[in-house]
Nucleic acid binder design. Structure first.
Length: 226
DNA sequence: GCATTAACCACAG
DNA sequence: CTGTGGTTAATGC
């Protein structure tokens, strides 16, 4: 246990901003900060989990093992809780989390987290708000993946990245081509072809993992047509 | 039939 | 790990 102070944390979640000094003190006593390097596993599917994980800095992929291959559930950017559904919803993790770059993580004891949920309604409401928005995003992603052909899925995912994950027209992808394939349920080869085709059509610029969105409007129509 | 879509395989940087 | 080409199976006019 470190003597880290949550009160002075620059990376506080919107929920913990509703906590008072005494609550933050208590949180600090039951919270450990850990750094992860690219590729390190933060928590693992099927393992017991007794911590709520808060991502302070960096990018993380959440993934689940399917019958044939791994499915990437989502890419999470900093200032987010990672394992609320899997820690509160069951004893074991239903999915894994891996650091996609240098990340800073807080492990929060589940008991103190539950205690705060019971005692502070503003805190709880903010957590619920997060979970709801997350579920809505997953529903949209579900539609994107099940009702569209490859071009539409790819365009839709690029739009999601530029709007919601990286929040920029130009970004450095934290995924390999193979991981991108696992994100939208296709093959590594198809992703390669998609990148060159979209680049040749002037929709995006690709330089390794650096992507620039050039024609958001056209991507939008490809995404809508499916 | 013929065209399209997308996976699988192989091989080369 | 990527990009490309060839092949192939499934599906839709």
């Amino acid at each position: 246990m470190n003597n880290y102070k949550c009160k002075d944390c620059k990376f506080q979640s919107t929920a913990t901003e509703f906590l008072g000094d005494i609550e933050l003190e208590e949180l600090a006593k039951n919270c450990v900060e850990v750094y992860f390097k690219k590729g390190e596993i933060i928590f693992k599917q099927d393992a017991l989990s007794s911590n709520i994980v808060y991502l302070k800095r960096g990018f993380v992929k959440l993934f689940m093992m399917g019958p044939h291959k791994e499915q990437i559930l989502k890419i999470v950017k900093a200032h987010a809780y990672l394992g609320i559904p899997t820690t509160v919803g069951d004893k074991v993790n239903h999915y894994s989390a891996m650091a996609m770059d240098d990340t800073q993580i807080c492990f929060i004891d589940i008991h103190i987290f539950k205690k705060l949920l019971h005692s502070n309604p503003d805190f709880s409401y903010e957590i619920i708000l997060n979970l709801c928005r997350n579920e809505l995003a997953q529903f949209h992603r579900c539609i994107n993946l099940t009702q569209k052909q490859l071009y539409g899925r790819f365009a839709g995912t690029l739009l999601d990245m530029t709007r919601n994950v990286y929040e920029s027209n130009s970004f450095h992808l934290h995924l390999s081509r193979s991981e991108f394939a696992d994100l939208i349920g296709t093959s590594r080869e198809s992703i390669s072809r998609l990148f060159t085709e979209f680049s040749d059509s002037g929709l995006i610029t690709v330089s390794g993992k650096n992507i620039t969105i050039l024609d958001e409007g056209h991507l939008e129509s490809i995404s809508r047509k499916g």
